Simulated assay, not measured.
Amino acid sequence: MSAPTDITPVLGRRRAYWHGAVCLAVLMCAVYLALRHWPTLHTGAVRLAVADQGWLLVAATAAAATWVSSALAQQGAVGSRLPGGRLVASQFAASAANHILPAGLGAGAVNLRFLMRCGLTAGRSASALAVKAGAGAVVRGVLIAALAPACTGLLRIPHVGPAALLAPAAVIGLVILLLNSPLWPRCRRALAVVLADIRAVHAHPRRAAALWGGSLAFTAFHSLVLIAVTQAVALPLAPVRVALLYLAASSAAALLPTPGGLGSLDAALGLALTASGAPSAAAASVVLGYRLLTVWLPLLPSLLVLGVLIRRRAL
């Protein structure tokens, strides 16, 4: 009788091939978009190269602060004390994984693995991530509602056609199907765990302050990156308007979940800036600067940190 074959190396190679294929597809899409809009990008890059270095430094500092803010929010969503250094490093590494899988799945997988390595069960880890994501969504919605009155006419409700009226009916139908499906008991138990964790967070003021303060700081620092870049390229837009444009564009880009928001967030930010009166070249330089500071420049270091964490079995 032959010895059983270990399929782990084979599965590992297949996973590596899939990851490589996804990364190649993302890179090809980025190259295609860059070639298609090369004149605008070239003009924007030249304008960014002669931008105010002081404001770019502010933008870079704000970009680095987003990972610390994310770590603070994650600590607030967890009852046990997490190792601070590895927590911040995992948030930095998650930013790299987020550009491989869409809709934040890469960052979610890294954070889930990190919390499980810290001793939490898979269910508790997933619940902590859900609490953090929910807090971030609430903060984003509250900020949009708070800033919209200060920028009258900036956000317009789109025209709703007759076909769009079917969306509420479709949602109600999906809810009814879920309530009558065999998956509902499992979903109900998961929802009960999340609600219990939310109550546990707010039973401790320090945890609640970390969760909501970190979520608010994360969104505010991302807005500050965009504001600082607009100031660096001398784009005459009020900071409040830029912050509202970022919140609206990033929320709209979430409806088209691409890895790291590649393409969807860029297009949404560019359209939002040009619709507010910015020239196309200036809008391109702002989007390019924002993406350089939040994605492309930190990408290689975050991949290295991800590899180190995996090697040390922190993930």
Rank of each mutant, 00 (worst) to 15 (best):
G214K: 01
S95A: 15
F114V: 02
P162D: 05
A34R: 07
A107G: 15
V201M: 03
H99T: 07
A283I: 10
V242T: 13
G261C: 07
P298V: 12
L178M: 06
I144H: 05
A65P: 04
A25K: 04
R86P: 03
I172R: 06
R47Q: 09
A164F: 05
I310G: 13
L271C: 08
R206F: 01
T152S: 13
A73V: 00
G106P: 01
L11W: 02
G214L: 01
V194M: 05
L179H: 08
R206N: 03
T219W: 14
V68T: 15
R311N: 09
L179I: 06
A282M: 12
L300R: 10
T219C: 04
A96W: 05
R113L: 08
V175I: 07
R117W: 05
V160G: 05
A49E: 09
A190P: 01
P185V: 08
C29D: 05
V225I: 10
S69N: 11
A169Y: 00
G79Q: 12
G213L: 04
A282C: 11
G260V: 04
V201D: 00
A146L: 13
G263Q: 06
P185C: 12
H42P: 00
L292Q: 10
A238H: 14
S285P: 08
A3E: 13
G261E: 01
T43F: 05
R140K: 14
G123I: 04
P4C: 10
D52T: 07
L11N: 03
V22D: 02
D6G: 02
Q53P: 02
Q231V: 08
L237D: 05
A252E: 02
M28H: 10
V201A: 02
